[in-house]
Computed example of a mutant assay.
Amino acid sequence: MSSTSRFKMQIYSPQWEDKDLYQFKKTKRGWEFENYRCKGEVDKGGNPLFYKALVTESLSYPNHLEEYLSIVWEKVEVLNKEQVQNIFDEISEWISASKNGFN
Rank of each mutant, 00 (worst) to 15 (best):
M1Y: 05
S2F: 02
S3C: 02
S3K: 06
T4N: 10
T4S: 08
S5A: 12
R6T: 15
R6D: 15
M9A: 12
M9C: 11
Q10P: 00
I11R: 05
Y12K: 14
S13N: 14
S13F: 03
S13L: 09
S13Y: 07
Q15S: 11
Q15T: 11
W16A: 14
W16E: 15
D18V: 04
D18G: 05
D18A: 08
K19A: 06
D20N: 13
D20W: 14
Y22D: 10
Y22S: 00
Q23P: 01
Q23G: 02
Q23T: 11
F24W: 03
K25E: 13
K26A: 05
T27A: 13
R29N: 14
R29L: 06
G30M: 03
G30S: 00
W31H: 08
E32L: 12
F33W: 10
R37I: 08
R37D: 13
C38H: 15
C38I: 15
G40T: 08
G40S: 02
G40K: 00
G40V: 01
E41W: 06
E41D: 15
D43C: 03
D43I: 00
K44P: 04
K44H: 04
K44G: 01
G45F: 05
G45P: 08
G46V: 00
G46E: 05
N47W: 04
L49M: 14
A53T: 10
L54Q: 14
V55L: 15
V55P: 07
V55N: 14
T56K: 15
S58Y: 15
S58L: 15
L59Y: 15
S60Y: 05
Y61D: 15
P62A: 13
N63S: 15
H64W: 11
L65P: 08
L65E: 07
L65F: 04
L65A: 10
E66F: 06
E67A: 02
I71C: 03
I71G: 04
V72W: 01
V72E: 01
V76K: 04
N80W: 02
E82N: 10
E82D: 11
Q83T: 06
V84R: 07
V84G: 07
V84T: 12
V84W: 04
N86T: 04
I87A: 11
I87R: 05
F88C: 09
F88R: 06
D89M: 00
D89L: 01
E90F: 09
E90H: 07
I91H: 04
S92Q: 02
S92H: 02
E93P: 03
E93I: 03
E93W: 08
W94A: 08
I95L: 07
S96F: 02
A97V: 04
S98D: 12
S98T: 11
S98C: 07
K99G: 13
K99M: 08
K99C: 02
K99V: 06
N100K: 08
N100C: 10
G101I: 02
F102N: 13
N103L: 06
N103G: 13
N103H: 07
